[in-house]
C-alpha cells in the first residue's frame, strides 16, 4: 500500500488557484521532492497533505486512510516539520520533546524511553537540559525533527527543511533522513534549491500551482544528456551573441568565465550520437565569427538545466494555445 496517495489536489484562495490538480504518490523508502520557486504552491500542498487546509477538490489518503473522512487515523501516521517550526525557547530540549509527545497523546512512560532514543538518533544526547533558545541553528533543526518524529510517523512532511543551513549541516540532516527511509518511512520535501532536490528519489517540478513534470532525477536528466556544453571563449560577449543566434543552440547562460549552451534535441540526434559533430560545427562557426575557442566540451546536465528547459517548453506551449 502506498504511504501517501494524493490525487487531483486543488485549492483556491478567492480567484487565485494556488494548487491546481496536483497528484503525488509516495511509497515506503521514497523521498518525494516538491521543487519550485517561492509562490509556486509548495507550502499550500504541504498544508493540504497534513489537513491544515481543506481541499476544494481531490483526495489525500495516508496508508489507505482518507484524510477528509478519517482525519484522526490519517494524521496519526504523519509527522510535519513546517518551514518556521516553533520550538519553545524557554523550555529545555527534553521539555520540548515531552510537550510535543503529550500533544500527540503519548504517555509519560513511553515518552521517557522514546525521548532518549530520538535524541540519540538526531545527535542531541547530553543536551536534554539545555534551553532550546540557546541551541545553534543546526541543533534547533535537529530538535525540530526529533519533535516531528515523536509519535513514530511513517510519512514525514518537511517544508524547506534546510533553508538557511550550511552544506555540512544539510548533509548531516540528510543522513538522518536516509536512515528513516532505510527503515521504510516515506518523506515529502519541498525546496526551491536544486542541490537539495537532487537528494530525492522522485521529483515534481512545480510552478504556478501545477506540477509541470515528474520523475526520478536520472530519468529527468536523461533527455538532456550530451546536450549541455561548456564553452570557454574570448571575447565572451561575442561568443554569447553568436551562440544565441546559432540554429542548434536552444539556450545560453553565463557562469562566471564560462558559457553553458543547451543544444536543441534534434541537433544531437541529427549528428553523431554524442553531439560531437555539432560541437565541431559550432567550434568552426565561432572561429569564423572571430571568437577564439579555448575549450568546448559536453558536461553533465544539472537539475537546474532540466527545470529551465521545462519552464521554457511550458511557456512556449502556452503561447501556442
Amino acid at each position: 500500500m502506498a504511504l501517501l496517495e494524493a490525487i487531483g489536489l486543488t485549492k483556491r484562495f478567492g480567484s487565485l488557484v494556488a494548487v491546481d490538480d496536483v497528484s503525488l504518490v509516495v511509497q515506503p523508502g521514497e523521498a518525494y521532492g516538491l521543487v519550485g520557486p517561492d509562490g509556486a504552491g509548495k507550502t499550500t500542498v504541504m498544508r493540504l497533505l497534513v489537513g491544515a487546509l481543506s481541499l476544494d477538490a481531490g483526495s489525500v489518503a495516508i496508508l489507505g486512510q482518507d484524510l477528509a473522512r478519517h482525519p484522526e487515523q490519517a494524521r496519526s501516521s504523519v509527522g510535519y516539520l513546517p518551514q518556521r517550526f516553533s520550538l519553545y525557547h524557554d523550555l529545555t530540549v527534553g521539555e520540548n520533546l515531552a510537550f510535543f509527545g503529550s500533544v500527540r497523546g503519548i504517555d509519560r512512560k513511553t515518552l521517557t524511553g522514546r525521548a532518549a532514543e530520538l535524541l540519540a538518533f538526531v545527535g542531541l544526547t547530553g543536551f536534554e537540559n539545555r534551553l532550546a533558545g540557546v541551541l545553534s541553528g543546526g541543533m534547533k533543526q535537529k530538535l525540530g525533527l526529533a519533535c516531528a518524529l515523536v509519535h513514530r510517523p511513517s510519512l514525514l512532511l518537511l517544508d524547506e527543511p534546510t533553508s538557511g543551513v550550511d552544506p555540512i549541516t544539510r548533509q548531516d540532516f540528510w543522513q538522518l533522513i536516509i536512515r528513516l527511509l532505510g527503515d521504510g518511512a516515506g518523506v515529502v520535501v519541498s525546496t526551491p534549491y536544486m542541490d537539495e532536490a537532487i537528494r530525492c528519489s522522485i521529483l515534481g517540478f512545480m510552478a504556478a500551482g501545477r506540477i509541470l513534470t515528474t520523475g526520478a532525477p536520472r530519468s529527468l536528466l536523461a533527455p538532456l544528456a550530451g546536450r549541455v556544453l561548456e564553452l570557454r571563449a574570448e571575447p565572451r560577449a561575442l561568443a554569447h551573441q553568436l551562440c544565441q543566434a546559432d540554429p542548434d543552440v536552444e539556450d545560453v547562460a553565463q557562469f562566471g568565465e564560462l558559457l553553458h549552451l543547451r543544444l536543441r534535441g534534434a541537433a544531437v540526434f541529427s549528428g553523431l550520437q554524442d553531439g560531437q559533430a555539432t560541437q565541431l560545427r559550432l567550434s568552426s562557426a565561432l572561429a569564423a565569427g572571430g571568437v577564439q575557442v579555448l575549450g568546448l566540451r559536453a558536461i553533465a546536465p544539472s537539475l537546474e538545466d532540466v527545470f529551465i528547459a521545462t519552464l521554457q517548453a511550458t511557456a512556449l506551449e502556452a503561447r501556442h494555445e
Partner: peptide
C-alpha cells in the same frame, strides 16, 4: 536569488554580468 525560480535566477545573473562587463 534565494527562492526565485531558475529562469528568473538566470536572467538576474545575466544582468549582473552586464554590469560587471
Amino acid at each position: 536569488t534565494s527562492g526565485v525560480d531558475p529562469v528568473a535566477r538566470r536572467i538576474f545573473w545575466n544582468t549582473i554580468d552586464k554590469l560587471a562587463d
